[in-house]
Design a protein around this nucleic acid. Structure first.
Lengths: 210, 210
DNA sequence: TCTTTTCCTGACCATATGGTCAGAAGGAAG
DNA sequence: CTTCCTTCTGACCATATGGTCAGGAAAAGA
């Protein structure tokens, strides 16, 4: 019943508490937004006294920034599936799969990201202007190459990317609405598969790859 | 230079101040979220003393509820374009046009709505369960009819609706990100037209109507 | 064992915020 | 003009919140 009281090393303690706090923070920020979240709520959810949060993260904003950065990392990694693909069917198909999986596994992270961007990206504006802009330019070029090679219909690459982001993230950000329209029940495994298939089918056909 | 000091009627005063407050509130709620918005900020933006807000709207939550309800109305009206259409090309095409126009004209409203839903729809849950659910069922049935009549490819109507919402609202909710990726400049008229065309082309082809 | 460093936390503080209220100001009605 | 009702607002209040700090507990190092 009781957990083994093995004495923890300093590094272990630090790592454990930081992730504990970050997980709690992600959930609270997602549920209440930055303004609505309170350090007390996050502390309670993490099972730690509030003062302890400030020991690990100086300010609420620092904690928030770390949460957003973590999400951004996951975001970027999903893009790897798009590279090294022989063509749009595989590349974009895999990207949709990856992003849908993220929406399913990290809905809170997606919401925090959406909230941050909606409010004008006060803390990650520099990321948008550097990392994300570069990333987008690269993928748009890749898509343009596919178009030039006649592998897909000629569409505006930027707007295709926006559509990919919008459609996949919608299942996380508007998950509550979807759940309500689904009779109040979260999507089942089968329904998630149907969602993924629907998105993939429509978008791939939409770019002339079907 | 000075506005005419014609004495205003009571009803005029009331109507004017209410819309003044509601407009300011929409902007502030969109920019800061419910938790981050303050009555003082809204008051300053409306050019009224804070106590005056509480004369017209008892609580912050009341004011917020009114803002969200206003948006919901606009939302539903956009759907009219879908009805009375001979087929999906016209109906869904018109719906995309209408929703893109809303994203362009009412980005703040869209953001408030997104924020509300992301946080679990604390104040409009009943709308989701009644009005929106009915609306969705009706349009899904309409789409299914088009499919049965062979007018479009057999897709899951619900997921098509989600895609329509996601894609169009993305241009409002993530407008800041899009603007950043556009070199920091808001989309021009020409670019908005390109966006609309891209979305319409890809989705209509995606459902086999092209 | 003794010292040092890190970790932890209850109590506390300054500030900001939602909301209240008494009374002034100004149209409406007679 | 007088009365009545709506609109308006500065001053005020209770509370919640982000953040601080002194000192205790516990691990690391010598």
């Amino acid at each position: 019943m009781t957990e083994p009281p093995r004495p923890l090393k300093r590094t272990e303690i630090r790592a454990m508490n930081e992730t504990l706090i970050l997980q709690a923070a992600e959930k609270v920020f997602a549920e209440a937004g930055f303004g609505g979240a309170t350090m007390q709520l996050i502390a309670d959810m993490a099972g730690l006294p509030k003062a302890n949060l400030h020991y690990y993260f100086a300010t609420k904003e620092d904690l928030y920034r770390r949460v957003v950065q973590n999400i951004f990392e996951i975001w970027l990694h999903a893009a790897d599936s798009m590279d090294n693909a022989p063509g749009p069917a595989e590349g974009i198909g895999a990207y949709i799969d990856a992003k849908m999986e993220i929406s399913r596994r990290h809905p809170d992270g997606s919401k925090v990201w959406a909230s941050e961007v909606m409010h004008g990206a006060p803390v990650i504006q520099d990321y948008l202007e550097t990392t994300l802009r570069d990333w987008t330019k690269g993928r748009a070029a890749l898509i343009q190459r596919w178009i030039d090679e006649g592998k897909m219909a000629p569409v505006n690459p930027d707007h295709l990317l926006y559509m990919l982001w919008a459609t996949t993230q919608h299942y996380a950000d508007f998950g509550h609405q979807i759940q309500t329209l689904n009779g109040g029940k979260p999507l089942s495994d089968r329904q998630w598969k149907a969602a993924k298939d629907s998105v993939k089918t429509m978008i791939l056909r939409g770019i002339g790859v079907a």
